[in-house]
Simulated scan of single mutants.
Amino acid sequence: MMPRSGPPIVGIDFRPALFSCTGIGRYTHELVRAIDCLGRDDVKMMLYGDAWRKVAQNDRITQLLSARKGVLRRRRIPGRLAPVLSYLGMGVERRLGGIDLFHLTDLALLPVRRAVTVVTVHDLAFEIDSAFHGRAFRRDVPGRLRAAVARAARVIVPSHETARQLRLRYSVVEDRIHVVPHGCDHMRDRTREASADELERLLARHGVERPYALCVGTIEPRKNHDVLLDAFRLFARRNSHTLVLVGGFGWMCDGLRDRLAHGRERGRVRHMENLDDRFLPPLYREAQWSIYPSLYEGFGLPVLESMACGTPAITTRRGALEEVGGDAVRYVDPEDPEEMAKAMAELSDDAELRAEMSEAGAERAGGFGWARAAQSHLEVYRAVASEIDAS
């Protein structure tokens, strides 16, 4: 094959960034933004955005891309038509107008027929415990992901824990796996966040009184909100804190939805379901402490975000969370509400401990940057493009 005349053209599944500011959406948005900000001329991005759902936060997306680096292809079509369009020769490669490789960023895997692929595997939680997801997910996703990983030229993961699980469960050889931790720069950019007055109005609207604690994450079984509420009820017997939950309702959460509406904790627990992205950094900074009691994580971005804001964090040692938190956070057993409540009380009562954890967390978070992550992704793209040229 003759070498290309210009930089490699990389297609990226940008759909997660169009519809969510958390998790995979956050990763996809910040990755593309960071690649764009690097200003490099050795790669061109073509962003795939076809889906039926309406785009969330249009201004954020509009401001993201410069004409220099990225082009977004977006039309409203049902996602279930993607396999049919691919079969008819009108899939990802045709839609993006010719690409050298395609980066699959989401678990909703697009069918790619000819282009070489790179895939990001965020975690294998559904392989760790089948109770974390519903029956339809367990039926459809694992097989598709296993096939996508087998086909991919490279696999990108956010942690050594996810890399270990890939080797163990999918038999992926080590030299195909690239560990690229997420960044947290988005929490330190004051130009992208709500003002102090806007935050006060938000807290008043939701009835949040200080001091408050913060838990950020989609409400789903793996995030362990039920045990968190059990622990907070024990803690609240002797403390006046409000617990603020930020995150939408996910799957298998009807019981928790009912508990938040009618349970004994409802007077002291406030839920912000569709929080504007601009409020998250100041909401973290004003919290006395945060808690992320997850049963398993392939990374654990909320813990990193809390540290970046200087807010002491309580979390667990499950999955990759210790890779993120290091010695800068307080660890608890996610299945022991009494231990969790004790940690809440210790942080609430000890201002000196909070100050120490705030400083240690901010220092540790400084080692996680989206520019570094973007550079690592570019290195993967270039390596794959070189292999294509040599084939």
Results as ranks from 00 to 15, higher is better:
L96C: 05
L96E: 01
G97F: 09
G97I: 13
G97P: 06
G97E: 05
G98Y: 10
I99T: 05
I99A: 04
D100C: 05
D100R: 01
D100H: 12
L101K: 01
L101R: 01
L101H: 01
L101Y: 02
H103W: 12
H103V: 11
H103N: 07
H103K: 07
L104M: 15
L104W: 02
L104R: 11
T105I: 07
T105H: 09
D106G: 10
L107N: 14
L107R: 12
L107K: 10
L107C: 09
A108F: 11
A108C: 13
A108V: 11
A108N: 15
L109F: 05
L109I: 15
V112R: 00
V112Y: 00
V112T: 11
R113V: 13
R114M: 08
R114Q: 15
A115T: 12
A115Y: 00
A115Q: 07
V116Y: 04
V116I: 14
V116T: 15
T117C: 14
T117F: 00
V118C: 03
V119P: 02
V119E: 02
V119S: 14
V119C: 10
V119F: 03
T120V: 12
V121G: 07
V121Q: 09
H122G: 10
H122A: 05
H122D: 07
D123T: 13
D123C: 09
L124R: 06
A125I: 06
A125Y: 03
F126M: 10
E127K: 11
I128D: 08
D129F: 05
D129W: 04
D129S: 13
S130R: 14
S130K: 11
S130Y: 05
A131C: 06
F132N: 03
H133V: 13
H133R: 14
H133N: 14
G134S: 07
R135K: 11
R135S: 13
R135C: 09
F137I: 09
R138V: 09
R139W: 11
R139T: 11
R139M: 10
R139E: 14
R139S: 10
D140H: 09
D140S: 12
V141W: 02
V141G: 04
V141S: 01
P142F: 00
G143I: 08
G143T: 09
L145K: 06
L145V: 12
L145H: 05
R146L: 08
R146Q: 14
R146C: 09
A147M: 08
A148T: 09
V149F: 03
A150P: 04
A150W: 07
A150V: 07
A150D: 15
R151L: 10
R151M: 08
R151K: 15
A152C: 02
A153T: 05
A153C: 00
R154D: 08
R154F: 00
V155F: 01
V155D: 00
V155L: 00
V155H: 04
V155A: 05
I156S: 00
I156C: 08
I156R: 01
V157C: 02
V157I: 06
V157R: 02
V157Q: 02
P158Y: 03
P158G: 03
P158V: 10
S159P: 04
S159K: 03
H160L: 11
H160E: 13
H160A: 15
H160Y: 10
E161T: 15
